[in-house]
Simulated assay, not measured.
Amino acid sequence: MFRFFSFVAALSIFCSCSNNKPTQLSPDSVSTDTTVYTMKVLHQNDEDCDSTLSKDCRILDISYPEFTDQPALNDSLSKRIQSIYTTETSYSSVDEMVEGFMADYRRFKLDPNFNNRVYNLTSKTKLVRNDQLIGIVVDSYIYTGGAHGGTLLSFINWDGRARKQILLDDVLKPGSRDSLKAIAERIFRKNEGISTSDPLKQYFFEDNTFALNENYLFTPEGIRYVYNEYEIKPYSSGRTELLLPYSEIRSLLKPESAISHLYKAE
């Protein structure tokens, strides 16, 4: 998977955190449970920026839900957001990661090669509810002084009743991964306009062999895969999306799982 690289260096700031009124994810006609959360918002401004002269003083903007009844989900989401800013330092919370980000920026401001380059980190979390299945989409952007910034889109699939993450092996029949990969490669080649005999040398797949990553979201249409920037293509090509419709993979899926209501409804 693509990882962001950061240059360790930094400045000073202003911070505000706010928790909104608890929000309830309403159940659909199948489910009778609810999931309650509050949104946590973190802001940081460049303290050397004159807000009376500029509207672009904010350099960090993170918002994400904190669930009242899902501590394991809170932990998983927190770690996912922390992974946006990868350094040699390990963080134990999003708040601590923010402090580290800003401290690095302060040091970066002292570097002779600073050249007025301003750090930026933005991360927004979106929730998608399909019965007991909670889909979490973390959409992020980060810039830490290099030639350009980078975006990262990542997913968490969560079983609200079982209170655990839903993994591919939880929904696939045993021994079906190779068949799933073969179907995915066929769809990928069609999307990319590549024949079945063409090599994949222009991509960053190991040994030029197609591979699915672990960045997927279970949607009502199918399994949505996303390869982020630099993962299988150059930065200039952006991210690559791949949808595996349930109509193509239904035979590979367990008849009963946390996502079976999605493809049985087809």
Rank of each mutant, 00 (worst) to 15 (best):
M1T: 14
M1V: 15
F2L: 14
F5V: 11
F5A: 08
S6P: 08
V8P: 04
A9G: 13
S12R: 11
S18L: 11
S18I: 10
K21P: 05
P22Y: 07
S26Q: 08
D28G: 12
V30Y: 00
T32C: 02
V36G: 02
V36C: 08
T38Y: 15
M39N: 12
K40T: 15
V41W: 11
L42G: 04
H43C: 06
H43P: 03
Q44A: 15
N45L: 12
N45V: 11
D50P: 02
S54K: 02
K55C: 04
I59S: 03
P65E: 10
F67G: 04
P71H: 10
P71M: 13
D75C: 10
K79W: 11
S83H: 15
T89K: 14
D95H: 03
V98W: 00
G100E: 02
D104E: 04
R106E: 08
F108G: 04
F108D: 02
K109L: 02
K109S: 07
D111Q: 09
D111K: 08
F114K: 03
N116I: 00
T122S: 13
T122E: 11
N130I: 13
L133E: 07
I134D: 03
G135A: 08
I136A: 05
V137A: 07
V138C: 13
V138N: 12
D139N: 14
S140F: 14
S140C: 10
T144Q: 04
A147S: 12
L152D: 13
L153W: 08
I156V: 13
I156Y: 13
N157T: 06
W158R: 11
G160Y: 15
R161G: 05
R161E: 12
R163L: 13
I166D: 00
D170G: 01
V171C: 03
V171E: 01
K173P: 00
R177V: 08
R177P: 00
A182N: 02
I183F: 00
A184S: 08
F188K: 01
K190T: 10
G193D: 06
I194G: 04
S195N: 09
S197T: 15
K201I: 12
Y203D: 08
Y203S: 09
F205T: 05
F205H: 08
E206G: 03
D207R: 09
N208C: 09
F210Q: 05
L212H: 05
E214N: 15
E214K: 13
N215Q: 09
Y216L: 11
Y216N: 07
G222M: 05
N228A: 04
E229C: 05
E229K: 04
K233F: 11
K233D: 06
P234L: 01
Y235T: 04
Y235F: 14
T240C: 03
L244N: 01
S247G: 07
S247F: 07
E248P: 02
L253A: 06
K254W: 06
P255N: 09
E256I: 12
A258E: 10
L262F: 11
Y263H: 07
A265N: 12
E266M: 14
